[in-house]
Amino acid sequence: MTEAARRTGRDETEEEQADRKWGELIQEVRVAQTGVQILFGFLLTVVFQPKYVRLTDTNQVIYIVTVVLGACATGALIGPVSLHRLVSGRRVKPQAVRLASRLTFVGLVLLLATMTSSLLLILRVATHDGYVPYLVSGVVAWYLVCWYGLPLWARRKHTDRSDD
């Protein structure tokens, strides 16, 4: 068994590993892409609603920031598809997988920011109450636990130290 096979628990070449990781990554990206595209689509319609002009200047700034974050998240999460299409057949799949993985991570961070600012805007408009920042902070803390805390904990707990 090769050194790489011992580390991954699989007897696969670098190319086979890249193929497997690519398939896994694309499945993950599909979930995030759908969410960010639906959110972004709804965000684009807000400015055309009659109530938009009655928003305070602060809420309009939050909206603009939210739309820009949503556009950036959409770009980062669709990026791996374009990357794959443009480098397909060029024998760079392991490098493409690493780059696509980084783009996906950036996209998830931007999606977190988009969802945070969307929630802030919606709750500010819906409630006009001072507890909105606390609600938003609680939801963001929950996202951080689900999206980053638990995965990092599992990685640390279940990763053999010799793998590092």
Rank of each mutant, 00 (worst) to 15 (best):
M1R: 08
T8P: 04
D11L: 10
E12A: 15
T13A: 07
T13E: 11
E14F: 05
E14V: 15
E15I: 07
Q17H: 12
R20M: 08
K21E: 14
Q27E: 14
Q27P: 04
E28H: 08
V29K: 04
R30W: 07
R30A: 08
R30L: 13
V31G: 03
V31R: 00
Q33E: 09
V36R: 10
Q37C: 00
Q37D: 00
I38S: 03
I38M: 07
G41N: 02
G41S: 06
L43F: 06
L44G: 15
T45F: 03
T45H: 05
V46A: 12
V47E: 14
V47I: 12
F48L: 15
Q49R: 13
P50F: 09
K51C: 03
T58P: 06
T58H: 13
T58L: 12
Q60P: 02
Q60A: 10
Q60D: 02
Q60Y: 04
Y63A: 01
V65I: 14
T66W: 00
V67Q: 05
V67M: 06
V67E: 01
L69F: 07
L69I: 02
L69G: 04
G70F: 03
A71T: 10
A73M: 07
A73C: 02
T74K: 14
G75H: 08
G75E: 01
G75C: 01
G75R: 00
A76E: 08
A76T: 02
L77I: 05
V81G: 11
H84W: 05
H84I: 00
H84A: 11
H84Y: 09
R85Y: 02
R85K: 15
L86V: 12
V87S: 12
V87E: 13
R90V: 02
K93E: 15
K93L: 15
P94N: 06
Q95T: 13
A96S: 07
R98Y: 11
L99W: 09
A100W: 03
R102K: 10
T104W: 05
F105K: 03
V106H: 01
G107W: 01
V109G: 02
V109N: 00
L111N: 00
L112E: 00
A113E: 01
T114N: 03
M115C: 06
M115R: 07
M115N: 12
S117Y: 04
S118K: 08
L120F: 11
L120Y: 13
L121I: 03
L121Q: 09
L121D: 03
I122M: 11
I122Y: 13
I122G: 08
R124Y: 05
R124I: 00
R124S: 14
A126P: 01
T127Q: 04
D129A: 12
G130Q: 08
Y131E: 09
Y131R: 13
V132L: 04
V132I: 04
V132H: 04
P133F: 07
L135Y: 12
L135Q: 11
V136L: 06
V136N: 01
V136T: 07
S137C: 10
G138D: 03
V139R: 06
V140M: 07
A141F: 06
W142G: 13
Y143P: 02
L144E: 02
V145Y: 13
V145T: 08
W147M: 13
Y148L: 15
G149M: 01
L150M: 13
L150I: 15
P151T: 07
P151M: 09
P151N: 02
W153F: 14
R155G: 14
K157F: 09
K157G: 04
K157W: 11
H158K: 06
T159F: 03
T159Q: 10
D160H: 09
R161W: 08
R161T: 08
S162D: 11
